[in-house]
């Protein structure tokens, strides 16, 4: 995830402007989340799969992104059908599986997989810097955008610091065990990490002030929206809008 491997590919999706991709992914995922009919969810799924295909991602990579979600989905499949009330479709002793529960599980599974596919195809194919740029240009709150970028930038520095501290502890014979000494050592490490991170933050801020920072961020325009980007935004928005209308007015295909 942190290595942004999906961002360094070449495809039609990668050529799209960041703003276009963020807007499209937002509309498509909201549309998916607001739908309840399986025929419409099926269409959203097809759209998301088409986007993944266009982004020329391998199934292996997509599966890697889906795996954590599937664990969550498995948990839902275990608990929901058993605990949901309604028409019973299968019974063994006191174990009752309800139709409504199974239907809800299928809906959740389809929705979450679809939304994740949309995000994998459109958002995960950008570097965090590009996402930050897109959010900034979309007038997303500056502080939040900046928080995202700074977190991403310094998480490496803090990770390296953590490894340095842990290595220093190991070189002095520290082997983590289930005892108070180990817990205390880890608490010291965590504490030291906080101290260092806060000093780091202070130095970074000072360096920014030295370069004339006065609380407002200005960025270079690296990307420009072109015709294809507008077309893509319109297509995705229309797709989500029309399908929502179908759902709302109970129009069947």
């Amino acid at each position: 995830m942190l290595d942004e491997s999906l961002a360094y590919k070449v495809s039609a999706v990668h050529r799209l402007e960041p703003r276009a991709r963020i807007i499209a992914s937002m509309f498509l995922s909201f549309g998916t989340a607001l739908s309840h009919r399986f025929d419409i969810l099926g269409l959203y799924f097809i759209v998301s799969a088409a986007l993944v295909f266009t982004a020329s991602l391998s199934w292996h990579e997509v599966w890697g992104r889906l795996k954590p979600l599937l664990w969550f989905v498995v948990m839902i499949w275990i608990f929901l059908p058993l605990s949901f009330e309604g028409e019973i479709i299968w019974q063994y002793g006191w174990v009752k599986v309800s139709f409504a529960g199974v239907r809800l599980c299928m809906e959740i599974t389809l929705k979450s997989v679809t939304i994740l596919l949309v995000f994998t195809a459109l958002v995960a194919t950008m570097t965090v810097a590009t996402i930050g740029y897109g959010l900034h240009r979309l007038n997303f709150p500056e502080k939040l955008t900046f928080l995202l970028l700074m977190t991403y930038r310094y998480i490496y520095v803090i990770r390296d610091e953590y490894h340095r501290l842990l290595r220093a502890a190991r070189f002095r014979g520290f082997v983590p065990k289930t005892n108070l000494h180990s817990y205390r050592t880890f608490a010291y490490l965590a504490g030291m990490l906080f101290v260092r991170a806060s000093f780091r933050a202070q130095r970074v801020y000072r360096a920014m002030v030295c370069r004339g920072f006065r609380g407002r961020f200005r960025t270079l325009d690296v990307y420009r929206l072109n015709g294809i980007d507008y077309l893509f935004i319109i297509l995705c928005t229309l797709c989500a809008g029309i399908l929502l209308l179908f759902e709302y007015y109970r129009i069947f295909l």
Partner: peptide, 17 residues
């Protein structure tokens, strides 16, 4: 401590901006 922008170009342009 000094390089916090995403890319080299962004960082060098931070001061002039």
């Amino acid at each position: 401590d000094q390089l916090f922008c995403p890319t080299v170009l962004d960082d060098v342009a931070f001061g002039p901006l």
